[in-house]
């Protein structure tokens, strides 16, 4: 899922400059699960804003609403009445939701309340880690199910660099060396032979480097 975290209150307040009527709009999918921008977090941010308004003598009227998904027009439309008449919508969705909200409610001013961090898994309560970089050309079949693009600090394709020590990456003792994980997994699978092959330079065209990506599925359109 998409993992995000709430921006500091000060930054959010700064982005509201000049606004009197604001809507805090949550998203009920990824950011709700990682506890950054779901209904509960909407309530918390709204309270913080109201309190700040009182303490600082700001003229600001705060309302709340949450859509099941802000990246989907059908769900965004459910916020129509809530958005109406507002000066600013504070979207608590990921960067996708913020933009899609702005597009669907033009010319509404939409500001983000969440930093979109990465595509990751929920490892433990309150702990997430990046597992995918959406590079558009998945290599997991050959790497024992561990992604070297997202999880190796240098996105190496042919094995660990010289900085792999005791299973950790050179950048930080808390970061696992993806190539140690790949090696261990391939060994356990009896597939080490695969790691002796040289992987040629890959095409990054399918990644962000090829320009903004778009997927059109004719089978779905029809």
């Amino acid at each position: 899922m998409i993992v995000g975290e709430r921006k500091p209150l000060e930054e959010i307040i700064e982005s509201l400059e000049g606004a009197e009527k604001v809507l805090v709009a949550g998203c009920g999918t990824c950011v709700a699960i990682c506890m950054a921008g779901g209904e509960k977090e909407v309530g918390m941010l709204a309270s913080e804003l109201k309190m700040a308004a009182k303490l600082r003598d700001m003229k600001i009227e705060v309302s709340e609403a949450t859509a099941q998904r802000q990246c989907d027009k059908e769900y965004l439309d459910t916020l129509k009445d809530d958005v109406k008449g507002k000066d600013v919508v504070i979207s608590m969705a990921c960067g996708i939701g913020v933009q899609y909200m702005a597009l669907n409610y033009e010319p509404m001013r939409v500001v983000p309340a969440v930093n979109t961090d990465f595509l990751g898994a929920n490892l433990d309560v309150g702990e997430w880690a990046e597992y995918c970089q959406s590079c558009g050309d998945c290599v997991l079949a050959d790497t024992g199910g561990v992604c070297p693009i997202a999880r190796c600090s240098k996105s190496l394709l042919n094995g660990p660099c010289g900085g792999s020590a005791d299973g950790k990456c050179e950048i930080d003792p808390e970061t696992e060396c993806a190539w140690q994980l790949i090696y261990d997994r391939m060994k356990a699978l009896g597939r080490l032979e695969k790691l002796t092959e040289i992987r040629p330079p890959r095409s990054w065209k399918t990644s962000r480097d090829g320009g903004p990506r778009r997927l059109v599925r004719e089978d779905q359109k029809a």
Partner: peptide, 13 residues
């Protein structure tokens, strides 16, 4: 560097 057993393989590559 670790994994030690992979180091000669990496050299072979």
């Amino acid at each position: 560097g670790d994994p030690f057993d992979f180091r000669p393989i990496r050299l072979a590559k």
